[in-house]
């Protein structure tokens, strides 16, 4: 019964979508604003990766809001799972095999380094703070898998997260004091194209986002693994 109703509803939606899709040809240019960004991103922001200059340059305020959403979700997850006064710990977890725990010793610093590389080069190559942060969180996931009893340093993670969030906001406020006087204005020199120290505030903000996303996602995994009885 339920499956039939679902299938009928899907068929109706499918026909409607199929008709409307005929008006959107695949592979044809569509938006004006995209052309504007591609033409002017290099002079405006100094970053060679146009996606990065849209995310952290033109629409940096959106990104601040998005980081806030991520923070609120992590906070909500902690609040939902927390039980007052219960004892904490992970029970019934088998110890990891030798391959996993030995491989972790060698791989953990390399994965951290790779994540840091991704978010420091976000304005030059594909990647950026969100991807680098996810790579760092997966390094911590590997630690949890290889040694189940281990916890991350909670105060260290909180400190990293708050400091990087504050850096993002502080850079935005410093933009108010400079030249054009708007939030998140680029007040650092843009440098030469295609070098590491270029694009003004973009690499700084992306480093802050990378550290924030990495510590937040590692905290999410840590909270979910916690057994509270």
């Amino acid at each position: 019964m339920r499956a039939t109703v679902g299938l009928i509803l899907l068929a109706v939606i499918g026909v409607g979508v199929g008709i409307s899709l005929l008006a959107i040809p695949f592979g044809a240019p569509k938006t004006e604003i995209g052309d504007y960004y591609i033409e002017n991103a290099r002079e405006d922001t100094g970053a060679t990766n146009v996606v990065t200059s849209v995310v952290v340059g033109y629409r940096a305020f959106d990104t601040l809001g998005e980081v806030t959403v991520l923070f609120v979700a992590a906070l909500g997850l902690g609040a939902v799972l927390a039980t007052a006064g219960g004892k904490r710990g992970r029970s019934g977890v088998e110890p990891a095999s030798l391959i996993l725990s030995a491989g972790n010793i060698f791989l953990f610093p390399l994965i951290l380094l790779f994540g840091a590389y991704i978010f420091t080069h976000g304005h030059l190559t594909p990647g950026g703070g969100f991807q680098g942060g996810a790579v760092i969180a997966s390094a911590f996931l590997l630690v949890y898998l290889s040694s189940p009893g281990k916890r991350i340093n909670e105060s260290g993670a909180t400190l990293t997260e708050s400091v990087s969030g504050l850096v993002f906001v502080a850079i935005g406020l410093l933009g108010l004091t400079y030249g054009t006087h708007y939030f998140l204005a680029n007040f650092l020199p843009k440098g030469t194209l295609n070098t590491l120290f270029s694009a003004g505030i973009i690499p700084v903000i992306y480093c802050a986002i990378g550290l924030k996303v990495g510590s937040e996602l590692a905290g999410v995994v840590d909270n979910l693994m916690e057994e509270t009885e």
């Binding site: 594909p126 990647g127 790579v135």
Partner: peptide, 8 residues
């Protein structure tokens, strides 16, 4: 960029 985010 999106491919990297989706994979990780």
């Amino acid at each position: 960029d999106v491919a990297m985010a989706e994979a990780s």
